[in-house]
Simulated scan of single mutants.
Amino acid sequence: MRGKLRLLIVLLFVFLKVKAQHDYSNYRVGLNYGFGSEFNNTDYTFTNHFYKAQLYYKIKESKNFQYEILIQPEVNFGKHQLLNLYFVKPETPDFEQKRIEYMKLKDVHEYVLNIGFVVRKPFGKIYSCYLLGSVGPMITDKETERMSKGFAFADVLAVGFTVDYQKLRFDVRPSLRHVSNAGLGSSNAGYNKRNIEFGISYQL
């Protein structure tokens, strides 16, 4: 048993040594954490925090730019409350009861799969900034006055700044996020939010 364990350790060491001698791949994996809130308005509040897995693939590199595809599964934990009861119109069925229900503070969970495109501008050997646009399907678990429960879409526009240390990359990313269901549900006013997220990723 000990001999097999030693052999396994030696093989693992050889594999890692050989891998380290090759160029880095075009793949990078990571994790981001972020938080944010709605733009100031008198109709509603929405605060949130979220976790994103990150899978990058560099598809092209030119003299000045790098181009990447980014896949981002996300779990978003939000708190929403209607402030303006007149947002629910009298022509809405059971509008008085819905006004009472919607004005309660609610926990809203969103499960998202965003697919994005990144244009990155390196500065020197370790710094870069980038522009990210992404869109993807999501499921929300609560009905509110602004959006029906169930299927919707999340659109994100972000800028970011990164610093590399060996195979690690540290990331700061302010973003704007719009969520709506494209008219597939009875309510589709959606949410507009500003977020900031922090991440770390590893080049495979």
Rank of each mutant, 00 (worst) to 15 (best):
1 M>S: 12
1 M>R: 06
5 L>R: 11
5 L>E: 13
8 L>G: 02
8 L>S: 07
13 F>I: 00
14 V>L: 11
16 L>A: 08
18 V>E: 12
21 Q>W: 07
23 D>G: 13
24 Y>I: 06
25 S>W: 10
26 N>S: 14
28 R>F: 02
28 R>Q: 11
32 N>C: 01
33 Y>E: 02
33 Y>T: 00
33 Y>A: 10
36 G>C: 03
44 Y>T: 06
44 Y>A: 08
45 T>L: 12
46 F>D: 03
48 N>R: 06
48 N>T: 04
53 A>P: 00
57 Y>D: 04
61 E>H: 07
61 E>S: 14
64 N>Q: 05
65 F>E: 04
65 F>W: 11
68 E>M: 14
75 V>C: 07
75 V>W: 15
79 K>V: 08
79 K>N: 15
83 L>K: 12
83 L>I: 01
87 F>Y: 11
91 E>K: 04
92 T>K: 06
93 P>G: 03
96 E>S: 11
101 E>H: 14
101 E>Q: 15
102 Y>R: 05
105 L>E: 15
108 V>C: 04
112 V>D: 10
113 L>E: 02
114 N>K: 11
114 N>I: 00
116 G>K: 02
120 R>Y: 04
123 F>Q: 07
123 F>L: 10
126 I>T: 15
129 C>S: 14
131 L>Q: 04
132 L>A: 02
132 L>D: 06
133 G>H: 03
134 S>P: 02
142 K>N: 08
145 E>I: 00
147 M>G: 07
152 A>E: 06
152 A>T: 02
153 F>I: 07
155 D>I: 00
157 L>D: 08
159 V>E: 11
160 G>V: 09
164 D>T: 01
164 D>R: 15
165 Y>V: 11
172 V>D: 05
174 P>M: 03
176 L>T: 03
183 G>I: 07
187 S>E: 15
188 N>H: 06
189 A>Q: 13
191 Y>H: 13
193 K>I: 12
196 I>R: 05
197 E>H: 04
200 I>C: 10
